[in-house]
Design a protein around this nucleic acid. Sequence first.
DNA 1: CTGAAAGCGCTAACAA
DNA 2: TTGTTAGCGCTTTCAG
Lengths: 341, 341
Amino acid sequence: MKKKSVTSHDVARLAGVSQSAVSRTFSPDAKVSDKTRKKVMEAARQLGYRPNTIARSLITRSSRTIAVVVYSLENPFYSYMLEKASRFFKQQGYHLLLFSASSSDGFDDVLDDILRSQVEGILMLAITLNDDQAALVCDYGIPVVIINRTVDYAGISQVACDNFQGGYWAGRHLVSLGHRRIAYLSGLVDSSTDIQRRAGFVEGLASMGAALHDSGIGHYQYTSACQATRLLFASTTPPDALFAANDLMAIAAMEVIQSEFCLKVPEDVSVIGFDDVPMAAWPSHSLTTLQQPVQTMIMRATELLLAQIDQPDTPPQQITLPVTPMLRGSVRRPSGDVNDT
Amino acid sequence: MKKKSVTSHDVARLAGVSQSAVSRTFSPDAKVSDKTRKKVMEAARQLGYRPNTIARSLITRSSRTIAVVVYSLENPFYSYMLEKASRFFKQQGYHLLLFSASSSDGFDDVLDDILRSQVEGILMLAITLNDDQAALVCDYGIPVVIINRTVDYAGISQVACDNFQGGYWAGRHLVSLGHRRIAYLSGLVDSSTDIQRRAGFVEGLASMGAALHDSGIGHYQYTSACQATRLLFASTTPPDALFAANDLMAIAAMEVIQSEFCLKVPEDVSVIGFDDVPMAAWPSHSLTTLQQPVQTMIMRATELLLAQIDQPDTPPQQITLPVTPMLRGSVRRPSGDVNDT
DNA sequence: CTGAAAGCGCTAACAA
DNA sequence: TTGTTAGCGCTTTCAG
């Protein structure tokens, strides 16, 4: 447990070369003779030398670090993204600095923290920026890509899915199945995804001459969704179909519906989710849901971020990807000829 | 998108003070007159100044950054830990640098990367170090805490559960329930957790006069566990009880058993898992499992790491916490008087 | 309490 | 190709 700290000087001394020779040896685009390099490498090995990234960052003004901000990792959808992002950036030679933020209140502090850490880009998973925050980051000239949340600020990139369309499909599908008491289980009511999914859903219902029967709020979380479901089904006119703003809540709802209200899915109640997390396909859930192309989303987001870092004049983009309905066992089978979108 | 970069000099100039005054103002233990501080703060605000963490780290030789290495985030057990760790360290003023490593092969590169980044501590989730790696880190004097994996190297701290005891309980419990064709579903056969759980299990069986009937390997993953389960149950003498090395695999097994082999859990097959991830308690799984005290584990680990950073003479510790059997619906009810451990 | 000066470990001109 | 020389933006003595 000796606190040493081998510097390039030490290596230079041992190798009998200048300190810059050492630096060059450890620089990607070296211009060093093989002889020098060999000497340096040997000395470095002997001393256990490793270049100090911090010092390097200070002078090159590039930390090769990305800040990833997550809201919660409870949802496998985001832990999957995080994992993928981690591998992608590592492969590109970037490090990931992980931040978590509960809400966009108090995010000011987190943002301040991020800005001090000299990251070269920010990837936000399901978190948004308010106008001041957006202005701040833009002013700093640091690229941001927001996944699954929108922000009304040109200059900030975002990657999301067609939430409206997904909601719309869900609405029409449930009506087409003959449901009439159709409820919506919100995530966070002020999140853009929730707003869009809900709007699409309501419009989908309307397009079939139906309307929203009831709704609850599940905060995109399991336990909260269970609670909301209890409220919904304790009503004198409980829903016969439910569209939840994400899979985690849809599954929570199914658990409550089946185990606490002794209703059957899909016989008594149809349930549709959103995301298509791996779990949704497990036989015991068999959740009909709207698939978001996670892989594509994270790829587009990470590539976009890198592009903006490498070429600061790359224009920010708002990318919207299509969702795909995944028909599984949690909704009734169509009874007869309904023409569905 | 202007690439500025306000330094303490700029602030000093505007505030009409020296650059050191600015530095002091932004140092936690400042010794600045209120008048100066006020001037500095005003100038800083005006310019949007934020101290450069990198420069600070270089001179203070402390990055206030912890490296967290994860194996996979598919298992909610670890994504939960990561989230908790993130919040804890943030609260302590530390940043988290996220690394992922698939196996301990090729971990050399990751370790090299970590060492270069001047982190002050390393937290490893379900990944271990080989002797060389352990020696290397110790030599660098950088504290490491390994969660859920052991390493034969004094000087490295580890936090884990009594895996042997957990396996032992599972073994005895299944036999006591009258099972005789008892199988084990391995995670990664060379992981310490798997080795210990299996050993405890086998010994538990033996203590009741039973022996392992069969086993499979599920790599701690869902899909792999499904595959292993298929093999196990396609046998002419399929198991009537299964102990899986983690919950994810136990759930995978139940899915396959029920949906593909049309067997009932627990009537035809009893299943026991390990971890007690939140999902295990969901009614549709209702998995009997051995609870690891995640909260405690992560607390102990993070506190230990911090202690070792703050006081380098803090001795490394090997912490083993007890596991708690959680009896749920995935195992038969005891039929008669069995005396269980 | 404040400013001047000396670096932290490294990269990047510039000369040799 | 190499060594020499300036710093990167900050903290930290050390005088004043």
